[in-house]
Design a protein around this nucleic acid. Structure first.
Lengths: 225, 225
DNA sequence: CATATGTTCTAACACTTAATGGATTGAAAG
DNA sequence: CTTTCAATCCATTAAGTGTTAGAACATATG
């Protein structure tokens, strides 16, 4: 009876190691970035707007919980998620957060200026329309992330190149832009730019991680690699 | 560009509120208990072997993150999970932990003295056998928890009453005992007792929360209420 | 070999959190 | 109303965490 308490404490403490990783905003941001593909410490630091040292420290935590793996590539060290289940957990955590926390709901709504800027989860019809070519699914993330994984039928134009490459997009079709996920603002900026230029563009909340983790679609067919 | 950083920080901070809840061993234990049904502060404290004050403090955190709801019932205050998604997240967190942390794997294996004491996830065949009456699925949790939700075809004999009520169980059938989940030791003790008494008994790792959160089966049909 | 670059380690600080004991609330029962 | 009981609030201490800066390490390049 007393021994069982010790065992239990040990067990829950181990599980809490995983929970601890998800208890820091910066670490969550790093996880979301790693969901897009493997990245160096430097690029993670840049994209999360924190110092390299702090990034390294947080990655250390992630590695301590065995949620990421490292590999040296030339001068740099690449971090990647150790398991797809890590990405799935990130998705489930942030979806639960959005479901339960009104503060988060309000903050997310503030992002989308117009409410109809943002389409949520009509994935099947989006897929059908994309297959027929009625809409253009636009991936505005960096090219490497597109190469790692992207939504079906998606075309890649990184946000930074969008202005110069506008001619590639047809003006008579709906453009559905997406990026890393609900908390990434690149698709937002893209839609804003496209609208100014006379396109009919909307913003897809979910990214590759969200599509991969939830919904009917769980296999590789739907997510091109 | 600078404003977007502020927004992002805000967003991830909100999500981290959920993660923080899952970063403490005691809170995890409370969540697992609440997965079995609504409970008073006192009973939670007793079952988690911590003081009422500390329990109250942890529940306060849970309520702050909107993961639980409270209701007064006579003298006591009942806590319950605010959403099935909370139970699902608990399951996903502890399953990822078991997948990634060798330390946890070893600790879990230590629980099951014999390796074949524990059957993992052959749910379909277990269901078939239970339907035909070839095996007896035995729920050894307290009666209230059984009433809240239990596995299909399961029979309830709380661990404390098992010794007196042994006569209810047929000796010519396999007994499959389960309890609150992988970190609950009641089914373990039950199997030990049953074996001493000459029964053929094994221990089912997963509990109601695990069955409800994963696998093909997601609707109420499989989990009687 | 020496230098440059990217990453990690160490130490130190402010800050937050877990846990405990004492006082307090608030509803139910005498 | 007073008492009783469950639960919470408050103040305190100890332990842990996020963050920063400086030193150290490992690998590629000259």
């Amino acid at each position: 009876m007393k021994g069982s308490r010790q065992i239990k404490d040990l067990l829950y403490e181990q599980v809490a190691r995983i929970g601890k990783v998800f208890s820091s905003p910066k670490r969550l941001e790093l996880i979301e970035l790693l969901c897009q593909g493997e990245k160096t410490v430097e690029s993670l630091a840049r994209e999360a707007s924190i110092s390299v040292k702090l990034t390294s420290a947080h990655l250390r935590e992630l590695r301590g919980a065995r949620l990421v793996e490292t590999e040296r590539q030339g001068k740099n060290i690449c971090y990647r998620l150790a398991d797809k289940a890590v990405a799935d957990l990130w998705v489930q955590v942030h979806m639960l957060a959005e479901e339960r926390l009104i503060e988060l709901q309000m903050a997310v709504q503030k992002i989308a200026a117009q409410p109809d800027d943002l389409i949520a989860n009509d994935r099947d019809s989006l897929l059908k329309a994309a297959r027929k070519g009625e809409v253009v699914v636009l991936d505005v993330r960096p090219a490497e992330e597109y190469l790692t994984a992207h939504l079906p039928f998606a075309r890649s134009i990184p946000l930074g190149e969008l202005r110069q490459r506008l001619a590639e997009l047809p003006k008579d079709r709906f453009i559905v832009a997406y990026c890393r996920g609900p908390y990434c603002l690149m698709a937002n900026d893209a839609v804003e730019l496209l609208k100014r230029e006379g396109y009919a563009a909307i913003h897809l909340r979910d990214g590759v991680a969200e599509w991969g983790a939830t919904g009917v679609i769980r296999d590789n067919k739907t997510i091109a690699r």
